[in-house]
């Protein structure tokens, strides 16, 4: 699972370079996210703009990332493609995350 991380205005933006976060990728995604967000800023934006498909394992993995970031840090999501957006809406997990059109919009939000 290839992730790219950058920082802007005190926000860490993690871009997923993969088409799918599915059962075959969920554990590697979690491990990679754990590594890349260790000791980072309090506000993390996960850019899913290249991800075309998320199954329930991938959804669970994204929830797990939010949980291991801990109470002092927040995870927002950006760039959801239509099928990914659908899964978040249907499971109502869109109410658990901040969801933004793109990473720029997510960076502009007031944190905390």
């Amino acid at each position: 699972m290839e992730l790219q991380s950058s920082c802007r205005d005190g926000t860490q933006i993690v871009t997923v370079h993969a088409r799918r976060i599915d059962s075959a990728a969920a554990i590697r995604f979690k491990d990679a996210m754990r590594a890349v967000t260790a000791d980072g800023p309090a506000h993390v934006v996960l850019d899913l703009g290249q991800v075309a498909f998320v199954d329930s394992s991938g959804l669970g993995a994204i929830v797990a990332v939010m949980k291991f970031l801990g109470p002092g840090r927040r995870l927002d999501l950006a760039g959801l493609t239509p099928d990914v957006d659908k899964v978040f809406r249907l499971t109502r997990m869109d109410t658990v995350f901040g969801i933004f059109g793109d990473a720029d919009a997510a960076c502009g939000r007031e944190t905390g």
């Binding site: 329930s56 394992s57 959804l59 669970g60 993995a61 929830v63 797990a64 939010m66 949980k67 109470p71 899964v87 249907l90 499971t91 658990v96």
Partner: peptide
């Protein structure tokens, strides 16, 4: 810390 990480499959 209690948010579900699974159990969405049969719903979907």
């Amino acid at each position: 810390d209690l948010l579900p990480e699974g159990g969405f499959g049969w719903f979907l």
